[in-house]
Design a protein around this nucleic acid. Structure first.
Lengths: 225, 225
DNA sequence: TGGGCCGGTTAACACACGTTAACACTAGTT
DNA sequence: AACTAGTGTTAACGTGTGTTAACCGGCCCA
């Protein structure tokens, strides 16, 4: 949920696997490299990655079979297949299931990165729900703060602001950063408007006295809990 | 909607354009070939294709600019960009909007076909009939909301609006986007008319209290369930 | 220690949107 | 031609969200 994004990479050729792994790691992904399909399946269960990059031709278990097995557990996880040039027909099969893409070898790292971002973008949206926050559960899409039986509804701006505070939980959320993101511009009036919203959030979060939004003068706000 | 699938192909190099056009036509696509961005835009308006294949480097109007203009009208239509090899950075820009893919020149027809099928699959597979929506089943063509034994009929505009809300389920559907699509123009009166339809939909969706259409002031609506 | 600055808080305000009902238009029916 | 039913638009009034203003207190630095 938080931390670097985990990617499972299944590639039997060690040299290529290592290069891809390292390139992705410089982009702040966490990469689990497996040299065959069976190991990849176990790593999938163990590490619960957010995205899979699977070579099709692999010892023990090929990429498609692996993908089918994993799809039984998870219909959503994005899968990128790596194919040798002669396998374009297989590719059509690989596409039957949603959330897939494929890359023909040889490929550039840029191409891979672009595809990873494109697919993550699509699947990440659905992670904003039911974030735990002290005694509360915060549902971003429904704009709700839930505490036991009670539900408080938030406005869109309140929800956005809280979401960004949570993303930087126990760390400083920069004033100008959030102003540009939610108000589009960091000027005097927007800044005062934001202060009002901080007040509103503090009120709505009062029922858990361990949660506090504290101000860092001149810098921004810190949500602690 | 029925008949062969229309594809708009914008490619300034006549030889390549002709080859691609003919190859696609042998696969039963209907292809409209345009040699520059301006003509492509007009053809888009005239023929309403289901998918766009756009060269990035084109006279008069490049592929990205063209895509941006078309995206203002239609956020859904799949776009495949054709890029020369030195443009991988541009590619990242082109990916910012959903429903895009790109192909590096030179490409094989097989690659193009695979991508076309993949994107059409994505946009077509969300078939318009019997869409599940909470406790309801929504049948777009029959304009029905079904809950158990009960059927509620919707008017055409209600069905269209609901359909677009569902397409963006749990995300914001832009006011002006939907106004342009269903009313043709985003003016004051159409906007008020749309509000009335939102009210009507809310009433008809009341029987599942988990479904809500919430307003995002100044932006649009979000259907959550 | 006092003045400027930053933020806290509350309330007033403007305006986007919600809701209802009356109205207008069309097509089919008598 | 008048009637009806179905659909969408316009009008009128009510509500909620976000902005602005006003007033307040505390922190920092001269």
């Amino acid at each position: 949920m938080s931390g670097p994004i985990k990617i499972l990479l299944a590639e039997d050729e060690p040299a290529l696997g290592q290069i891809v792994k390292e390139s992705l790691e410089t982009r702040n992904f966490e990469v689990i490299l497996c040299e065959d399909g069976t190991k990849a399946y176990h790593s999938y269960l163990e590490y619960k990655p957010e995205l899979l990059v699977l070579d099709i031709m692999m010892p023990k278990k090929d990429g498609f079979t692996l993908a089918e097995e994993i799809r039984k557990n998870d219909m959503e996880i994005p899968i990128i297949f790596l194919t040798a040039k002669s396998q374009t027909k297989d590719v059509v099969n690989g596409f039957e299931i949603g959330g897939n893409d494929y890359l023909k070898k040889p490929f550039s790292m840029e191409e891979l990165i672009v595809r990873i971002h494109a697919l993550l973008h699509r699947s990440r949206k659905q992670q904003k729900d039911n974030i735990l926050l002290g005694k509360f559960t915060f549902n971003y899409t429904k704009q709700l703060l839930i505490l036991g039986e009670e539900e408080q509804s938030l406005t869109h701006k309140e929800a956005e602001l809280l979401y960004h505070l949570i993303q930087k939980q126990n760390d400083v959320l920069d004033r100008s950063e959030i102003l540009k993101k939610l108000w589009g511009d960091d000027d005097f009036f927007n800044a005062r408007s934001m202060d009002v919203f901080i007040t509103k959030l503090r009120k709505k979060l009062k029922k858990d006295e361990n949660i506090q939004i504290i101000n860092i003068r001149g810098l921004g706000y810190k949500l602690i809990c």
